[in-house]
Design a protein around this nucleic acid. Sequence first.
DNA 1: CATGAATGAGCTTTCATTCAT
DNA 2: TATGAATGAAAGCTCATTCAT
Lengths: 216, 216, 216, 216
Amino acid sequence: MRLENKREVQSSVKDERLIEMRRDQMIKGAVSLFKQKGFHRTTTREIAKASGFSIGTLYEYIRTKEDVLYLVCDRIYDEVRVRLHDMEIDGGTLQSLSRGIAHYFKVVDGMQDEVLVMYQEAKSLSKDALPYVLKKELEMTKMFETLIQKCVDEGELVMEQDEIHLLAQNIFVQGQMWAFRRWALREYNIDQYTDRQTELLLKGVRGYQAAVNKGE
Amino acid sequence: MRLENKREVQSSVKDERLIEMRRDQMIKGAVSLFKQKGFHRTTTREIAKASGFSIGTLYEYIRTKEDVLYLVCDRIYDEVRVRLHDMEIDGGTLQSLSRGIAHYFKVVDGMQDEVLVMYQEAKSLSKDALPYVLKKELEMTKMFETLIQKCVDEGELVMEQDEIHLLAQNIFVQGQMWAFRRWALREYNIDQYTDRQTELLLKGVRGYQAAVNKGE
Amino acid sequence: MRLENKREVQSSVKDERLIEMRRDQMIKGAVSLFKQKGFHRTTTREIAKASGFSIGTLYEYIRTKEDVLYLVCDRIYDEVRVRLHDMEIDGGTLQSLSRGIAHYFKVVDGMQDEVLVMYQEAKSLSKDALPYVLKKELEMTKMFETLIQKCVDEGELVMEQDEIHLLAQNIFVQGQMWAFRRWALREYNIDQYTDRQTELLLKGVRGYQAAVNKGE
Amino acid sequence: MRLENKREVQSSVKDERLIEMRRDQMIKGAVSLFKQKGFHRTTTREIAKASGFSIGTLYEYIRTKEDVLYLVCDRIYDEVRVRLHDMEIDGGTLQSLSRGIAHYFKVVDGMQDEVLVMYQEAKSLSKDALPYVLKKELEMTKMFETLIQKCVDEGELVMEQDEIHLLAQNIFVQGQMWAFRRWALREYNIDQYTDRQTELLLKGVRGYQAAVNKGE
DNA sequence: CATGAATGAGCTTTCATTCAT
DNA sequence: TATGAATGAAAGCTCATTCAT
């Protein structure tokens, strides 16, 4: 399956600038609603109202309710990626990897609502739209893989290809986890969470080496 | 908030054995449907049909559609816990912790559908029912905390209280991850996944210590 | 294209007797509404109300609004055919042909509303349902063809195959005409209309032969 | 009810020539759409597009969607009448009557789409506009009546007043029939259809006289 | 206890029409 | 004059829930 980068959402309005503007309103309104009640319990009328225009106008900019969800997911990923952009610049040191993780976690922290929504509702996308979103997710984990790979290339780390892949996934999920398991993480603030997780990710369990040595 | 262990779901049928039986059918049917189409896209009629009885009968054993979801989530957690039961017996060695993780991952692997459903749909539970489910989740992470704590008590590991908590959460999430990110983990089978993750969890990134030493 | 005699309209109700009954109500209500405002200007809610049940119940017996139209058309043809049934019995005399025509016209007269509705709305049927209705129309013109053919076989008339076909069509259309051009036929009652038309159909224009002879 | 010949359709544009031009475009576009999908299933946007201007402009030249239908019907009748114009010149022979019929059938054949549209959609005109269209239809049947009357006056035919009226109606309907029952008339081309119908109209059924004579 | 027909609130979506530019 | 974005009433249809049998 060959995927273009975007799945165009049809609009009967022609003015591109207007589309951009209205969809901004729409996405903002929708995220807030989806966070409160989820995609399915939110009505299109509510979305229109929260966006600041009428139901008729809403449908000038989308074709189906699902389009709103797609736009929301699409936008969130783009936003996350934009914010992560400078991450890739850095070189292949462990420090830069730590900084990358910290940066990513910070971005998630700043977009908790959005991440949560996307995380919980993306599965409601149709078979048609899902691949476009998954593709973006893939690109994000790829960023972490690249970051790690550089460390390996620089001799800072020793990892197999599949370990790299898995570590990248873990980092990605632990970022999301900050959004979707807040209820279980109340005792941390984002900095503490970042420190602790980074340490666990990189060093593993403290004392483990000692224990292993002892056991030998 | 003081929570009893169960939130009773009203039934107008008196015969407890019958209730048990009917709800078994119901849960089995519902899980399969929720997996395919999600809670919101599944109709009560479909649930009744998949359960092998009429819509009228369905409503003899529940009061609202959401009850079905609650029953499903409730049951899945119970099932997981039952299967994990023997995990707690073991003592405080690193080996027993590894075994615990492996066991848990295996259970998730054997209940992928159920875990996935619960994972994706639990959020649709009303404010009323959610705590009961979260409580069960808490109990499960507690099991891992206990397991780790034992290792600490035995001097096998050196960890602070909050690190233990976080590690337990990570283990729990990585188990679920096996169910909800299968699309990104196709290259592993459950054993490989278990090995790799356990290693990362416990040892951290290979070469890290060396790098740190070198840096000093 | 091979057509079964009926295109089944799905119903979620199982009791066949009930379906029959409810659809009777539905058709009666719908005919009256379609006559007043046409198919497109009639809402499903109005149909439900005119049928004596709720919108929900209406949709227990059909799947789409168009189904109502199909049921109406289907029923009307059946009804017309039932009423025409004895027409076919008669033998091949001119008198029996006249009687057949008169009988058909009478039937149309007694079902003016229905014929009008079907006549004007049948074209709104989807490409899917139309053939089933056209097939019934064909059967009706066939009846006239048979009637005429008998006369030819008996030597009462001398007609080519395609003339027979056309005459049958004319009879059929002139019957419908009584329903759909009443506004232009106010000066006649059904008996006068029948007499005049039969005469024109069979004898042609009075004086024509004379004129032709004269012209020779 | 006293009817002026035209029912003015309001336009906020003053330039008469422009109105004429735009409405030409509009009617042409609308006929094509109405033929495909009928009046009700055609949207004003589609009409505007097919007419080559915007929805806003469309509404500069009409007041309601129904106006389009009225304009279409109105135009078609005018067109038919214009094309039939020379028919009336001819004198009172049977031959001229035949020629008139043939001419009318030919006109219908050349305007099949338009005739069909008008035929099927005219009923959707409001109680307000309908009379204006029916009046035009009346004028057309009057033309045939005149043609026949001349034959009677010339002694070529012997017919009562109401027979003349009915024959005119029949001719008119059989012309339309060529448009709206093409599916049942596939075996004829327009010339064959004309010949056969003219013969049936004028001579009646072949062999009938003989049969009657024999029966006497 | 089991059934399934009945209900109607509420959903998504369309589209004729308006009006500021 | 021409445009097309905005509007919202109203349409078709669904489905959780009830209740008479």
